[in-house]
Design a protein around this nucleic acid. Structure first.
Lengths: 193, 193
DNA sequence: ACCTGAACACCGTTCAAGT
DNA sequence: ACCTGAACACCGTTCAAGT
């Protein structure tokens, strides 16, 4: 005898995202998610193959959100300002939702990672802006340099790895300004804005 | 009736390091380590409080090894070359022992992290060299910029995050050269060398 | 003193039985 | 069709009992 569904995949993913951000990836247990949507753990397996697939769907949703935020940040004036705004947006997302950020960028099982096209939508506006600054021949290397710095800085900030005192904001300002100057074609080494 | 010990803390930590590098952090189970030293899982609790403490001791050992490697790399000629060699050493360690590297730099529970003095021994030679290049006023910001880039680049390399083609070596060369130029005091923006 | 098997907690997962 | 309790596997941890 058919029974009406008590939940849905969308509801499960939405609940999973909230639990991830509130309690971290370790807190994202199948039973925890199930009870949040009003069923028991085993019922989730009607909608997802396993926990990894649920995490993958949550990662896709987080990547889409981040892509929107970065895309919106990119719409401002000149290329330097635009790049700065995009990195600011990435950093703000990491601080607001560190567990979601970690799900997108930490080393985790491949099957958990968001789909590649969705990730490319996040970095595409960044690459476009870097191309303006660095010139098309060095676009790839320049973008990778900026992204590597941004990811490393954010990772260290989240991990509380800046242990030697000093101002983290000063380090961020110094880093982003020097990076932007450093990737510019025949950069005149003017620092600051 | 006293029984002679069948293993030791040193042997347990050494076995743990091998298992970590061969099978990853998830493979580092208490029973796996115990059997490697000839006892059963529960016996380890005579020597470590819990799995976290064992991981912490393994992290300390890995940090000491990495500190030696970075320190040795630092002894070459001028400051630019020395800094380049140290970052190369860091990258080589990450590639040779990605799980050990991850244990030192990934976001993990605080109690698992290596002791701060041991970590400071790793970065100290790097800071000294950066101070020569960037000048003492900007030493901290400059060191953080280089370390953030290096960590981000290595993280992306380990995570196989360079998905858009192109040469990863080219990106590394581009990054390290531009970074070193960018942190130098009133850098003349000469690239290469 | 040190070591072990049995036991428990926790969590992912399966499945037979309910509706 | 969907949901559930019971059950199992796996792993960290405790502990009473062995030597």
């Amino acid at each position: 005898m058919p029974t009406p569904a008590r939940t849905s995949l969308d509801e499960i993913v939405a609940a999973g995202r909230e639990i991830l951000d509130a309690e971290g990836l370790d807190g994202l247990t199948m039973d925890r998610v199930a009870r949040a949507v009003g069923v028991r753990g085993p019922s989730l397996y009607k909608r997802v193959r396993d926990r990894g697939e649920l995490i993958h769907l949550i990662a896709n949703a987080a990547a889409l959100e981040l892509g929107d935020l970065v895309g919106e940040a990119a719409t401002t004036g000149d290329a330097s300002r635009s790049l700065r705004a995009m990195v600011d947006a990435l950093r703000a997302f990491a601080r607001a939702k560190p567990s979601s950020y970690g799900l997108l960028f930490d080393r985790l099982p491949d099957t958990w990672r968001p789909d590649r096209p969705i990730v490319e939508r996040v970095v595409a506006p960044l690459f476009r802006t870097v191309a303006v600054l660095a010139g098309p021949e060095r676009e790839l290397e320049a973008a990778r340099t900026v992204v590597a710095w941004a990811r490393g800085f954010i990772e260290m900030e989240l991990a509380d790895a800046f242990q030697l005192g000093g101002s983290i904001e000063d380090a961020y300002e110094f880093g982003i300004e020097r990076l932007i100057a450093a990737i510019a074609t025949s950069a005149p080494c003017r620092v600051g804005g």
